[in-house]
Design a protein around this nucleic acid. Sequence first.
DNA 1: TTGCTCCTCACGTCACGTGAGGTGGC
DNA 2: TTGCTCCTCACGTCACGTGAGGTGGC
Lengths: 283, 283
Amino acid sequence: MAQMLTVGEFSQLTHLTVKALHHYHQTGVLEPVLVDPVTGYRYYDPDQVETAHLVRRLRAVRMPLAEIQTVLAAADQQARDAGIAAHLSRLRQELASTAAAVASLEALLSRGPSSSRIDYRREPSRVVLALSGEVERNEIGSWCARVYPRLYAAAGERELLVTGPGGALYGRSWFEQGSGGVTAYLPVDPVDPVAVALEDGPGRLGEAQVRLITLPAQRLAVAVHPGPFDELDRTYGRLGRQVVERGHGAPGPIRELYLINPADTDDPADWRTEVCWPVSACP
Amino acid sequence: MAQMLTVGEFSQLTHLTVKALHHYHQTGVLEPVLVDPVTGYRYYDPDQVETAHLVRRLRAVRMPLAEIQTVLAAADQQARDAGIAAHLSRLRQELASTAAAVASLEALLSRGPSSSRIDYRREPSRVVLALSGEVERNEIGSWCARVYPRLYAAAGERELLVTGPGGALYGRSWFEQGSGGVTAYLPVDPVDPVAVALEDGPGRLGEAQVRLITLPAQRLAVAVHPGPFDELDRTYGRLGRQVVERGHGAPGPIRELYLINPADTDDPADWRTEVCWPVSACP
DNA sequence: TTGCTCCTCACGTCACGTGAGGTGGC
DNA sequence: TTGCTCCTCACGTCACGTGAGGTGGC
């Protein structure tokens, strides 16, 4: 019979605390090979030390326990490595966005108040090729990256002329709850919406369908936001504040128009986003 | 009377969710200027939008709410900036240790099992200059960085000859609970402990005192660990496993000797740590 | 008998998110 | 009257840490 290790010993050989080992037992991430049915004592096999070292390293790179469990249960080495690589890739993205957040903080502290122009305009109704979805705040970037290519492809297939930069509608709840309905759209040359919409296929499973819709005419307060998207709050603050102070805010989703966007250039400093706030009257 | 903003409006202007705003209210981080006593409705001042933008950025760089509160309450701009700078510095350290963790994970996956020699030796009793403290796992690095210079200074003051590299004793509970008593020491030329100990001053407030103590003679199983400290678990695994398999483990703290350490070179790959496990007999 | 190691609840942490159920003003 | 916005509990999340109180083997 092979030597068994108590929790205390196993803890010393793995540098995992006893409490952590209890937790890994309870969640099934790393189970002792034997639990004494009468005392409840946990006993580990010396061969589990290696696995424990892996768990410790995966936790050190903040992999969630549930994923660690999946990695450990992977059928072969390849599946295991793929799981780890996927997490490391997410970790890199996290690092990048933290770096961006630091830059954004320093920009807020060093730059004075932003003060670009606020314009008012009457936007006529428009026919647009649109895709809607329920999107979470932190997924909006990747959602757009998936959705706009589909819209351009759909415009091409239908031989519709795209007449301007892409935009999106954000319901108020998108801001207030951190998730909600978003509609991405491309303005296209006016056609009979009904005729074209009928051509629309059934769409792939689980994917929203591209539709032709008509955005209503609307009065808008408009400001252009320069820079990365996670600094949009500043422009929203300026724009919304003026609208609220003048007391002419109107209901309905807020529009963004991506004048210069990641498809045009990789440098966030060059991006330009028009933020359009519904108002009841133009001064 | 100035315009007030409802939570919903304030949420849209700041890109903070309503639930987050509730939470910031409850914890006192960002309180509405007015709460309707009958409806409980929260009302914000437009000037609070700027503060909210700062809070959002500080959260984006993972500053805890309690610290954000301190930063916002700072008496002057200088105190505020200092608080932020301190956090950013911690964030950088976090990034560095995450990078190290990634390297450590990749090393575990790519390198085969480590297999340096395990030796046994009878260690004679030794007079050492020592400092003890209750230390948490993640503070051990900075603790050592503070403590060894003090030990060397104390040795110099007393004209004691340091006869070898510094070491430390770690109680078993240090591993099992993630914190506990640690004793850092420098071996010194034998002298009469009592005579020298009496010279020891009262010590600064809240700081442990440098003492002369005698480490008992002991039989040890010994392995040299190459590389960074957070990979020590591998050497502990090999060493402890052999000790347990041979069934000759003995109680008492584990010793580490820092043969080549951060004071010698900045490259963790060059570090050498001797891990010494108490045993009851040498084979 | 005394330590020592081990055990199991149960609750705390942190920053919110998620409903459930209800209210006031247009 | 119907929506709409807002409210307050109360509980969940995640990976453990922190006691409290108790047990088995030397």
